[in-house]
Amino acid sequence: MGILSGNPQDEPMHYGEVFSTWNFVLMSNKAVAEAQVLLNHAGDKDLKKLLLESIELGQSEVEKVSTLLKENGIALPPAAPEPPKVELNDIPVGARFPDPDIALSASEKVSAGLVTCSAIMGQSIREDIAMMFGQFHMRKAALGAKYLKLVKEKGWLIPPPLHLSHKD
């Protein structure tokens, strides 16, 4: 048997895994709180549904990674307090985030999460950690596809300059 080839849960985490998973919890807590704020500003029902899905996904991931950290004797990062729920009409018009901006901000967080999951998968030597973040990656990719479909359907997509092939 090779080094660290037993049950992955019995293997110690290396410093990179500890830092990356701890930081993942910190940033995911922040992303959940930001999505909760954006939910207060959202008017579109389809966007609200996706924001709720983002919040639930983030909370589920935080719970799983927090359990991993606790099982390995690692203190958890501070969590952002849940922002109060506010009715959209209670937010002054000039202070509201428009739905297209909300969708862009939320999908940007999903994209950043994909990159983070990939990085953690690549640096992990514990198979259970790599597999956990592989599952997170797949769920985030599916959620990102839903955001892309939404912004296209609603006409909120701002594409970069398109390259059109001009054949003479």
Rank of each mutant, 00 (worst) to 15 (best):
S54F: 01
M1A: 13
E153R: 06
P161G: 05
G43V: 13
Y15I: 15
A31D: 14
L157V: 09
A130N: 03
V65L: 03
I55F: 02
G43L: 08
S124C: 09
D44Y: 05
S54L: 04
G6N: 02
S105C: 07
D10N: 12
M132H: 10
G155F: 01
A42Q: 07
N29D: 12
E87I: 12
L26Y: 13
Y15A: 15
H166Q: 13
V93K: 11
V93A: 11
K167Q: 14
A42F: 06
A31W: 02
H14V: 14
L52W: 00
E127I: 10
V110D: 00
S124W: 06
K154W: 01
L114F: 00
A112P: 04
K154L: 03
I102W: 00
A31K: 09
F97I: 13
S124G: 13
V25K: 04
Q59T: 14
A103G: 14
G144I: 01
F136Y: 04
H41F: 06
P159I: 08
K49P: 00
E53M: 08
D128C: 06
K64F: 00
I91L: 07
D168G: 11
G43N: 14
L26C: 04
V110M: 03
G73M: 02
P78V: 03
P77W: 05
E56D: 15
G58W: 05
M131H: 12
Q36C: 08
K149Y: 06
G144N: 06
S20N: 12
C117G: 13
L76C: 10
S5D: 14
R139E: 01
E61L: 05
S118F: 00
L4I: 03
A95P: 00
L69E: 12
V37A: 06
G43Y: 00
K140P: 00
V62D: 09
A141V: 09
P160S: 14
A106R: 09
L69D: 11
S60I: 10
A103N: 07
E17V: 10
G134R: 01
L39V: 08
I74M: 00
A141R: 08
G58H: 05
P12W: 05
V86H: 00
N72S: 04
P77Q: 04
A112G: 02
V18I: 15
A142E: 15
P160W: 02
M27Y: 04
L104S: 13
A33Q: 10
A95E: 14
T67E: 15
P98V: 15
L148V: 12
S118V: 06
S60P: 07
D99G: 10
R126E: 08
A141Y: 06
A33M: 08
V93Y: 04
K85C: 01
P77K: 07
Q36N: 06
A35G: 11
P84W: 03
G94N: 13
E34F: 04
G58T: 09
G2I: 10
L150P: 07
I91P: 05
T116Y: 02
S105H: 08
K140Y: 01
E127Q: 14
E108F: 07
S107C: 03
A106V: 09
S66T: 11
D10A: 13
S118Y: 03
Q9C: 08
F24A: 15
A35N: 12
G155H: 01
E61Y: 06
A35Q: 05
L76N: 11
P161N: 07
N7H: 01
K167V: 15
E11C: 02
G113Q: 03
A33G: 10
P160I: 07
P77R: 07
L114G: 04
Q36E: 15
S118M: 09
G155I: 05
W156G: 11
